[in-house]
């Protein structure tokens, strides 16, 4: 039960990745580093005496600004380029952010204990910590807000229009540069919120990013780019499957299982696409 909720945090990071990938055709490798920075934001607020729950929106806002600046500085140069260029650029950013965080915050492992209780059922055999339920709720909430935002708001419509056809959108008077910047900043904000949840639930350190990047990548590949609900489902499924594998095979195979699953999904997707004559750009 508790294992299922772990997937909620993966799902959050995956929303952002799906958004950036779908709209900008950029595979954002520094996804995990946004999560890490969000975690540190929550941690430092916690140290200053602010409750970590407050850290979630604050981390989102700060990371929004950070994402916007990053877009204006680097990402706008790679939007229309080959997919590999964007992967290289964001990979470089990911290394840069890791090292900067290491310099600024130190390599120590930190955690912001929100003091949430754990619920017990069946004579302590099933335990669910409240913080994971909060994470789960936050993932659902952010997913719903995102879906509404994309469907209803002007900006959301502009984002969707740009995703469908950037050139046409530009002809129709949409400032696609601004749309891209907002999309990227939004992604950073969602990851920041996820990071605050990570700091509350587990622990943070400068090098925690990669597992989140890899898992969001998997979830997006499985769920597709335009489907928020599918992303959530895939995220939860991955969280549960991964922990189940750790339980059955032993923790040493937990990561191996995730990567094996990634390969399996890629293969399956290829055959499936061949059969349905689909086209994935």
């Amino acid at each position: 039960m508790s294992n299922l909720l772990i997937g909620a945090v993966f799902a959050l990071a995956a929303y952002g990745m799906a958004l950036v990938w779908g709209v900008m055709n950029v595979v954002n490798i520094c996804q995990g580093e946004f999560v890490m920075l969000g975690g540190y934001t929550a941690y430092f607020l916690f140290k200053a005496g602010v409750h970590p729950l407050v850290g979630i929106p604050v981390a989102a806002v700060l990371l929004f600004v950070f994402g916007w600046l990053l877009y204006r500085a680097v990402i706008f140069r790679v939007v229309d380029k080959d997919l590999f260029i964007s992967i290289l650029a964001t990979f470089g950013l990911s290394i840069l952010l890791q090292q900067l965080a290491n310099q600024l915050f130190g390599a120590d492992v930190r955690t912001a204990d929100a003091g949430f209780r754990t619920l017990f059922f069946f004579d302590n055999m099933v335990t669910v910590s409240v913080v994971k339920i909060v994470a789960f709720g936050a993932a659902l909430l952010v997913g719903a807000i995102l879906m509404l935002f994309l469907k209803k708001s002007r900006l959301g419509q502009a984002i969707r229009a740009t995703a469908q056809n950037a050139r046409a959108a530009r002809i129709m008077g949409i400032d696609t540069g601004r749309v891209y910047a907002t999309t990227y900043a939004l992604n950073a904000a969602i990851c920041g919120a996820a990071g605050a949840l990570v700091a509350m639930t587990w622990l943070i350190h400068p090098y925690l990013g990669l597992p989140y990047t890899v898992r969001s990548f998997m979830i997006v590949i499985l769920a597709g780019l335009g489907n928020v609900a599918a992303v959530l489902a895939a995220g939860l499924g991955l969280g549960a499957a991964e922990n189940f594998a750790g339980f059955i095979l032993g923790a040493e195979y937990q990561s191996a299982f995730v990567f094996a699953l990634l390969v399996a999904i890629l293969l399956w997707r290829r055959f499936w696409l061949d059969r349905t004559r689909g086209y994935l750009k």
Partner: peptide, 20 residues
Amino acid sequence: VDDKLPPELNDMAATLTKIK
């Protein structure tokens, strides 16, 4: 129980469930 934790592990829930 004799688990080898992967270096990038951020969560021990699977191992601890077994131990419990």
